[in-house]
């Protein structure tokens, strides 16, 4: 097994674990963590699988760079909205998920 394929496999496992966490948690910050881990997992798959097939490849790396920027922007926005939601209601989860 090439290192690239190994990292792709790790990426797949990360996605699986993070998806389970995304589904299980209701706390918005925890869901954001899960989302970030899931994103990183997909990046590992993207680069790992491609380099396993064809060796070092600048294209997927460029894509991952873009993806990282997009992910942090999404997280930042989500946190802004979440903090306003929290300030307004004192809740950390969405109403339909909230089981106090």
């Amino acid at each position: 097994m090439s290192p690239a394929l190994w990292y792709a496999l790790v990426g797949a496992l990360l996605v699986a674990v993070a998806f389970a966490a995304f589904a299980a948690h209701t706390h918005v910050v925890r869901r954001l963590l899960a989302f970030n881990v899931m994103g990183t997992g997909s990046f590992l798959i993207l680069v790992g699988l491609a380099q396993h097939e064809r060796g070092p490849d600048p294209v997927p790396q460029a894509l991952v760079l873009t993806g990282i920027v997009v992910a942090v922007a999404s997280t930042a926005l989500a946190l802004v909205v979440f903090r306003r939601w929290f300030a307004a209601t004192g809740r950390v989860a969405l109403p339909e998920d909230d089981t106090p």
């Binding site: 792709a8 996605v15 995304f22 918005v28 869901r31 989302f35 899931m38 994103g39 997909s42 990046f43 798959i45 993207l46 699988l49 491609a50 396993h52 097939e53 294209v59 997927p60 894509l63 993806g67 999404s74 926005l77 989500a78 909205v81 979440f82 306003r84 939601w85 307004a88 209601t89 969405l94 109403p95």
Partner: peptide, 28 residues
């Protein structure tokens, strides 16, 4: 609106991640 936005955001993030994962596999 804030709750709706958060819900929308989570759905959107999940949706685009699934898409990105698919794109990664296609590139491979």
């Amino acid at each position: 609106a804030l709750a709706a936005a958060l819900r929308y955001l989570l759905a959107a993030l999940l949706g685009s991640l699934a898409y990105l994962l698919g794109v990664a596999l296609l590139y491979a």
